[in-house]
Nucleic acid binder design. Structure first.
Lengths: 184, 184
DNA sequence: GCCAGCGGAGAACGCTCGTTCTCCTCTTGC
DNA sequence: GCAAGAGGAGAACGAGCGTTCTCCGCTGGC
């Protein structure tokens, strides 16, 4: 196995385990077992568990940004539709069987108080999502605060869907977003 | 020190430390030091750290429910105003210097995947907040889904304010709530 | 065929944590 | 004044974790 696939397998295994059980409840041994990558290799690629967590979060950040953009490109044309498409994307995500909330909200809650790096990555990600909305809101000529409100709806849908274990908040938030869009 | 005040001091110390650093990063020794209650007493009152965490969350649940109700009673009279008062309460909370997000969202992210009890308490709390909105929405004769949407706004404001470290999401969510109320 | 070096399995190490135990002090009832 | 018991301080214990090390087998160049 070359270094590249080892890194990928570790990132995927860690992401899955962190999502399922949280960060601190997952030992490096569990990541080694799930990834099939030896501890030696693992520490060659990621010098510490903290570094691995940061890499997982940065990768997830890029993944979510790309997914939002490409989902909108595939399902919507106007800025109005592209805003709503974000909530459709959330709905598909929430329905996945292993969905357990947003990785950044969860990581911030668990580690953000103790690791400035994790808090920064979470803030950066949430700012990026807000900015995605902001670009669409600007295209619509609506006031900028609408972008913040759409981001709040999205974050609220993630938190609510995670805790309640149902995908419905996506549709409810989408309906609310439509009301806000129509009022602006 | 009698048992009652020992219990109270432990609960307050644990709540503060859990909020600041997360649950798993706080040792029982830190709680003992912060509370001034000996480990022996501590384990007499709470048989395990898990039990202590559950007690902290249940107490916080009651505290938040009472605060929402009494804040609304003090600052609002109509159901419409009482809905918006929840977001004013959030704004005051977010501005507190040690605010670091919602205890239930954070605890769910950290422990919810591994402890059904914690996940249950978080779900119960969020359901209670939704039901608070639902009662007001029913008084207004608005469709029930509005209560879910208001709860999503509140949860989103908490998550966003925690991660970004600013209280503004409360006002932004309040403005969004007003739009939803007026549209219903 | 042989050896140098790379990689894997997993033991080892040092630390922290949850929980319990020990020992000492102080109070209290007589 | 004294025995008895409760309570506090902190050591002790066992488990688990992040990280490193050891040892062994395999591979590839000559």
């Amino acid at each position: 196995m070359d270094t590249e696939t080892a890194e990928l397998r570790v990132l995927e295994a860690a992401q899955s385990l962190f999502n399922e059980r949280g960060v601190q409840a997952v030992g490096m041994d569990a990541i080694r077992t799930a990834s099939g990558v030896s501890l030696k290799r693992l520490y060659q690629v990621f010098p510490s568990k903290d570094a691995l967590l940061e890499a997982v979060l940065r990768r997830r950040d890029a993944e979510v940004r790309a997914a939002i953009t490409s989902y909108a490109a595939a399902h919507a044309t106007t800025p109005y539709e592209r805003v709503l498409a974000v909530f459709d994307y959330l709905g598909e995500w929430f329905a996945e069987p292993d969905f357990r909330g947003c990785a950044f909200i969860n990581a911030y809650g668990e580690i953000g108080g103790v690791s400035a790096a994790v808090a920064d990555i979470a803030r950066t990600h949430k700012t990026a999502v807000r900015d995605h909305f902001a670009a669409l809101v600007a295209e619509l000529g609506a006031p900028a605060v609408l972008a913040d409100q759409l981001a709040i709806l999205a974050n609220g849908a993630m938190a609510t869907a995670g805790i309640n274990g149902t995908p419905e908040p996506a549709a409810q938030a989408k309906a609310a977003a439509r009301v806000l869009l129509d009022a602006a």
